[in-house]
């Protein structure tokens, strides 16, 4: 009887192995290493720089590094230049895509508005190292202040 129970146990284990085997095989592939793509330059991120050039919450969560955006600008953050929209769009796709994703904002959607279509540069409103602004508020102060049209610029 004891023997029997033991055997059933073995069988069950085996059966589980059958199910698990393919899964473990697959997960083996995941850890294969990929080529190192980091450039020659690196920036040592001191606490001082971190405070001086804070990242947006979402970007900080992803632990983005200076040179991801300031690519090819040396390794001194003080000498970095503001990036243009091309850099933003490397991750965010195209302006058309962004406009489409936020289509629910409707007519006031600043990424595809009656005034500017998809022509505005990202950094008319979105800043990385300081608080963003809302350019629309120049003329549409109330619609923006009351969140009638959109929320605070991320």
């Amino acid at each position: 009887m004891k023997q029997r129970a033991q055997n059933i146990f073995v069988a069950l284990c085996l059966s589980l192995c059958f199910t698990l085997l393919p899964l473990t095989l697959k997960s083996g592939e995941v850890t294969s290493s990929s080529p190192d793509l980091k450039g020659r330059e690196t920036v040592t991120m001191t606490q001082e720089f971190k405070e001086k050039y804070p990242l947006k919450r979402v970007h900080a969560k992803l632990s983005l590094e200076c040179l991801f955006c300031h690519d090819g600008q040396g390794n001194n953050p003080e000498a970095f230049k503001a990036v243009r929209e091309k850099t933003c769009l490397e991750c965010h796709g195209s302006k058309e895509k962004i406009a489409q994703r936020l289509d629910f904002i409707g007519k006031p959607n600043p990424h595809n508005s009656i005034h500017d279509g998809t022509r505005l540069s990202c950094d008319e409103c979105h800043y990385e190292h300081k608080a963003s602004i809302n350019m629309c508020a120049e003329c549409h102060e109330k619609e923006i202040a009351t969140n009638m049209w959109m929320r605070k610029t991320p």
Binding site: H115, R119, M135, C139
Partner: peptide
């Protein structure tokens, strides 16, 4: 300006 169109666009 960053925005084309001046007063004409508003």
């Amino acid at each position: 300006m960053g925005r084309f169109g001046g007063n004409s666009i508003i």
